[in-house]
Design a protein around this nucleic acid. Structure first.
Length: 514
DNA sequence: GTTAGGG
DNA sequence: CCCTAAC
C-alpha cells in the first residue's frame, strides 16, 4: 500500500485570492500563493505543495445546474492545481516525480470579513488565520478550491507536533480544536493520484481525509454535500477514473477490489478507466504563474466562471510524461485569444491573451470531448459482471443481466420468454438511481440513465427510463411512510433497501420542492 | 424521443 | 412492467 500523507500532514489551506469581476480587482497569480507555504512544505518534508485557485459556482441549483458548471469549475481548478504542482515540483527541484498527489476539492463559503480560516484536521487542531478578503462577486456563491500535496511516500504521518511546529515557524497559528468540533463523517473524499515516474500507476479515492477543510463546522446541508459529491465525482471522471461502489452516506463503503493495482482493501473501488495509452497524458498547459482567472457575472444567469490560461511555455515540463495527468482537456489546444486588456494588465504579459467567451466555449467543448473519449475507450466501469455485494444471504441476486445483454438485450429478452420476468432492482441499481436523482433531480430519467458519473449509467444499463421513473415512484412512496413504519420495515429482511437510503430519498424529495 | 400516470 | 396520452 502506498504510504499516503495523512491528513495531519496536509498543509493548511492557504488563503485564496479572490479575483473579482471588476477589472481592477484582478490579482496576479502570485497572489494565490500562500505565504509561507513553501517553507511549510519543506519543514514537513513535502516535496511540494500547491493550491488551486478557487472557482465560484454561484447559485447553482444542483437540480438545474448544467453539470458543465461543475466541470468548468473543476477543470479550472485542476488545471491550475496541476500546473501549480508541476511547477512547485520543479521549483523545489524535487528529484523524483510526485509519488503522491492529492487533490481535494474544497468548498469555501463566502467568508465573513475578516475571514477566519479554520481547519480541523482530524479534529486535533484548528489552524487559524486572519485575512481580509476582497468582497466576493456574489454574496451567495460557493467557491471551490483545492490543494494538492506532492510528497515522497512516507512511512509515517508526521506527528501533529511537528506540523504545529512547522506552522509556527511559518507564522501560522495552531489552535486547539474547538470543543464543539465533532469529526463528522467525512462528507466526501477528494482524490489522489498515486504516481510514479513515467506514469500514474493507480488512482485511488481516499476516503480517509475529509474535505471539510474550509467548510464551516456545521454539517453541510445536503445540497452542499451533493454538490461536493458531484464535484468529486466529476474530478474523478475528468481524471479518467471511475468510481465504483456506493458513494452513499458520505463515504463509499465497499471496496470492490477490481484491478486497482497497488490498492489494498483500504481503497475504494476505483480503477483506471483508461489504461495504458491514455495514461500519463502530459500536462501541456501553462505554469500557474501564467494563469489567471476571471470571474464574471453574466446577468441573471450567473455564469461566473471564465478561465483562461496561457499555453505552452515551460517547455521543459510541458511534454514530460511524468506529469500527473489531471485531465484530457489539458492536451487540447486552446483557442488563441484576446486579452481583457485593462483587466489583466499586470498579468497579461505572462498570460498571453484570453477572451472570456472562447475560453468558456472551449471548456465546454472539452467536456464533450473528454466524455466522448471516455465512452469510446473502453470506459466501462466494469461491464456488468458487477460483483453485486448481495446483502448477505438475500435471494441470490443472480439476475442474468441479459447475459451481459451485449448492448441490445433485445435478443435475450425474447429468448428468455414471452413475458418479461420480474427483475427486482438490486441495491446498487437503487443506489445509482438515488445518486442520479441527487445529481440531476427527478424527472431527468433519460439523463440519469446516461449519467456517466460514478458509473451510474453502467449500473442502470438494463433499466429503461421508464423503469427508472417507476422505481423512483416506488421509492418515494415508501419513503413517504412514517418513520416508525420505516424503521420497522428496515428490520424485516424482505426489504433490502436500507433505511439510510430511504431517508436519502426522503431528503431528496423534500429538497425537490424549493 | 421523453415523461407522467393509470392499469 | 406495460401502455398511452401528452408533450
Amino acid at each position: 500500500m502506498n504510504a499516503l500523507l495523512e491528513l495531519s500532514c496536509a498543509p493548511p489551506l492557504p488563503h485564496f485570492m479572490i479575483v473579482g469581476e471588476d477589472d481592477d480587482s484582478l490579482g496576479s497569480a502570485d497572489a494565490w500563493a500562500a505565504p509561507g507555504l513553501a517553507d511549510f512544505a519543506q519543514l514537513c518534508g513535502l516535496a511540494a505543495v500547491a493550491v488551486s485557485a478557487p472557482v465560484p459556482i454561484a447559485g447553482v441549483s444542483p437540480r438545474r445546474r448544467a453539470s458543465s458548471d461543475l466541470v468548468d469549475s473543476l477543470e479550472s481548478t485542476q488545471t491550475l492545481l496541476g500546473a501549480s504542482l508541476v511547477d512547485a515540483c520543479a521549483a523545489a527541484s524535487a528529484p523524483e516525480l510526485p509519488s503522491v498527489m492529492r487533490f481535494v476539492p474544497v468548498p469555501v463559503s463566502p467568508p465573513q470579513q475578516p475571514y477566519a480560516f479554520q481547519q480541523q484536521p482530524h479534529g486535533t487542531a484548528a489552524f487559524h488565520r486572519q485575512h481580509s478578503y476582497p468582497a466576493l462577486p456574489q454574496p451567495d456563491c460557493s467557491l471551490y478550491g483545492g490543494y494538492g500535496v506532492i510528497a515522497p511516500q512516507q512511512p509515517q504521518p508526521l506527528p501533529f507536533a511537528a506540523i504545529a511546529q512547522a506552522m509556527e515557524q511559518c507564522g501560522w497559528e495552531a489552535h486547539s480544536a474547538p470543543a464543539q468540533y465533532q469529526p463528522q463523517q467525512p462528507a466526501v473524499g477528494g482524490w489522489e493520484v498515486h504516481g510514479a515516474a513515467g506514469g500514474i500507476s493507480s488512482y485511488d479515492l481516499q476516503p480517509g481525509f475529509s474535505t471539510q477543510f474550509g467548510s464551516h463546522l456545521p454539517i453541510p446541508s445536503p445540497r452542499d454535500d451533493r454538490m461536493r459529491r458531484a464535484l468529486s465525482e466529476e474530478a474523478l471522471h475528468i481524471g479518467g477514473c471511475s468510481l465504483r461502489g456506493s458513494y452513499a452516506g458520505g463515504l463509499a463503503t465497499r471496496a470492490e477490489g477490481e484491478t486497482s493495482e497497488g490498492s489494498d482493501g483500504d481503497t475504494l473501488g476505483l480503477h483506471h478507466a483508461q489504461d495504458a495509452p491514455a495514461r500519463g497524458l502530459p500536462i501541456s498547459h501553462s505554469a500557474p504563474s501564467a494563469s489567471l482567472m476571471l470571474l464574471e457575472r453574466s446577468g441573471s444567469n450567473r455564469r461566473p466562471l471564465v478561465h483562461g490560461h496561457a499555453h505552452g511555455s515551460r517547455s521543459g515540463l510541458a511534454a514530460s510524461p511524468r506529469t500527473v495527468c489531471l485531465k484530457l482537456k489539458a492536451t487540447r489546444p486552446r483557442p488563441p485569444a484576446a486579452a481583457r486588456a485593462a483587466a489583466c494588465a499586470a498579468v497579461a504579459a505572462a498570460v498571453g491573451e484570453a477572451s472570456p467567451r472562447p475560453a468558456r466555449q472551449a471548456a465546454r467543448r472539452s467536456v464533450a470531448i473528454s466524455a466522448a473519449a471516455m465512452d469510446d475507450d473502453d470506459y466501462s466501469y466494469g461491464s456488468d459482471t458487477d460483483t453485486e455485494p448481495t446483502p448477505s444471504g438475500g435471494a441470490s441476486e443472480e439476475r442474468r443481466s441479459g447475459g451481459s445483454a451485449a448492448g441490445a438485450g433485445a435478443g435475450s429478452a425474447a429468448a428468455s420468454g414471452s413475458k418479461k420476468k420480474h427483475n427486482p432492482w438490486s441495491l446498487t441499481e437503487t443506489e445509482a438511481l438515488v445518486e442520479g436523482v441527487r445529481l440531476l433531480g427527478p424527472s431527468k430519467w433519460a439523463e440519469i440513465k446516461k449519467l456517466a458519473v460514478g458509473g451510474i449509467a453502467d449500473v442502470l444499463t438494463n433499466r429503461s427510463a421508464v423503469d427508472i421513473k417507476d422505481k423512483w415512484r416506488n421509492l418515494t412512496r415508501v419513503a413517504k411512510l412514517p418513520k416508525t413504519v420505516l424503521k420497522a420495515r428496515a428490520h424485516k429482511s424482505t426489504s433490502d433497501i436500507p433505511l439510510e437510503l430511504l431517508l436519502t430519498v426522503k431528503d431528496l424529495m423534500e429538497m425537490g420542492r424549493e
